[in-house]
Design a protein around this nucleic acid. Structure first.
Length: 189
DNA sequence: TGCGTGATATTCT
DNA sequence: GAATATCACGCAG
C-alpha cells in the first residue's frame, strides 16, 4: 500500500468548496503489532491508536512533539492495526491557501515536504482522526490509474526518525518509499 | 546544530 | 491521581 499510494492525490475540500491537493510522493509503511516503530506494536490499543484498528481507508491522525500532526492511511483489515504514513506531497491545487495555512513564507518545495508540513498545508488536525477517506466529502484520496508512478522510479530506504526501534532491525528496514528525484520529498534522506 | 511544546504511555504512589 | 520520559518534526540560528 505504501508503494501504491505514491502518485495518488490527497484532497482537502474546504468549507468554501475550494480544493487543496497534492500528489503523494513519499510514504512509510508501519506494519502493526510486530513492528517496533509502529504505535500498535505488541498490540497496544489505546484511545490514540484506536483508529488504526478500524477498517481500511480510515485516516489515522496523531499529534506529536507538542506541535505537529501526522497523517496516516489505515490499510489493514479491520482489527489489524497497520497504516501508511504520508510524508510528502507535490502540491497541485490551492497553493496560495496552503501558504496561508503554513503561516510562513515558503516556496513550493517547502509547502508539503514533511509529514507535519503537509498536515499544516491541508489543515489536517485531530478532528480528521478516524474519518473515512472513502466516503468523506472533505478529505479523500483520488487515484488516476493512468498516471501511476513507474516501479523503477520508486526508491526504498530506511524510515525517518525511528532509531528507538532498532531492536529487531525495525529502524533500518526499507519501509520508506519515495519518487526518485522528485524535489518535493522531505529533506531528511 | 539545538531547541520548543504538550499529549500520551508508562510507572509510581 | 500524579510524576516522568518520550516522541513518525520543523524552525531559527
Amino acid at each position: 500500500m505504501a508503494r501504491a499510494l505514491l502518485g495518488a492525490r490527497l484532497v482537502r475540500v474546504r468549507n468554501d468548496a475550494s480544493r487543496l491537493s497534492g500528489i503523494i510522493v513519499e510514504t512509510e509503511a508501519y506494519l502493526g503489532v510486530k513492528d517496533r516503530a509502529c504505535h500498535s506494536f505488541g498490540g497496544r490499543r489505546t484511545p490514540r491508536v484506536e483508529a488504526m484498528y478500524g477498517k481500511p481507508g480510515l485516516a489515522y491522525v496523531f499529534f506529536t512533539y507538542g506541535m505537529h500532526h501526522c497523517f496516516n492511511v489505515v490499510c489493514g483489515r479491520e482489527g489489524e492495526p497497520v497504516a501508511v504514513l504520508v510524508r510528502a506531497l507535490e502540491p497541485v491545487e490551492g497553493l496560495d491557501a496552503m501558504r496561508r495555512l503554513r503561516g510562513r513564507k515558503c516556496g513550493d518545495r517547502e509547502l508539503c515536504s514533511g509529514p507535519a508540513r503537509l498536515c499544516m498545508a491541508l489543515g489536517i488536525t485531530l478532528r480528521d482522526n478516524g474519518v473515512d477517506l472513502v466516503s468523506d466529502p472533505n478529505l479523500f484520496i483520488e487515484h488516476d490509474s493512468t498516471r501511476t508512478v513507474p516501479a523503477d522510479c520508486v526508491v526504498a530506504g530506511p524510515r525517518i526518525g525511528v532509531q528507538y526501534a532498532a531492536q529487531g532491525g525495525w529502524s533500518e528496514a526499507p519501509l520508506r518509499f519515495y519518487v526518485g528525484g522528485n524535489p518535493h520529498v522531505s529533506a531528511r534522506g
